[in-house]
Amino acid sequence: MNSFWEWMKTRLGIEELWNALFARHVPEAKGWTAWLYTLGSASLFVFTVQAITGALLAMNYVPSPDHAYDSIRFINEQVLLGRFLRGLHHWGATAMVILVSLHMLRVYFMGSYKYPREATWIVGVLIFLVVMGFSFTGYLLPWDQKAYWATMVGVNISAQVPVIGEYIGKVLKGGDEMGAVTLTRFYAIQVLVLPAIILGALAIHLFLVVWHGISESPTRKEDDQNKNAGTGILQ
């Protein structure tokens, strides 16, 4: 056991990793606001749930108008725990949007995007947009009425852009009409493109959070001047 631990330490640098990620000290948040700091990790947790359930669902899904609907029915009705797993992915998507939004609001209202954490915020906004992209592309995949018509509306909204709108709509749909190519495009974006982007963005986001340290609870201007005379930054 001991030599195993030694091996991990010397070959993987696991001790340094642990110290950097988990043993680091963080400023203590005040009272109940400490719970607001869990929103980021909660989003990360739900992302993991989405990644795993998504990979499993992809095992029984066909991105083709002929079979998409029936393969979803197959998951719901024939595969052991299929209905449950699809339920997790469906509600996980909703939870993801809620949690990422709340996390963003926390940072907005606490002013945590300020110096030196500007880049963390910008990457965070990118992650938020990717999450919305996941929602939009994932919605079409069951190829039921709701999926088809909601996507139709969504694509037509993007076609409102002056001048180039028509071309954007065509590129999204993969042609003039919504159909087989739309579905395969959305599927590829949902399972290949967006995961690649979000994994990269998450890595940068998390690195920046650890490197800069998590932002401390905001204080009033006056408090800052009175209590922290000398170190106050708002003089």
Binding site: V49, I52, T53, L56, M59, V79, L80, L81, G82, F84, L85, L88
Partner: peptide, 12 residues
């Protein structure tokens, strides 16, 4: 719990 659910699905 998650391994149980995912495992059951995978091994279905």
């Amino acid at each position: 719990v998650f391994t149980g659910i995912g495992g059951g699905y995978f091994l279905s």
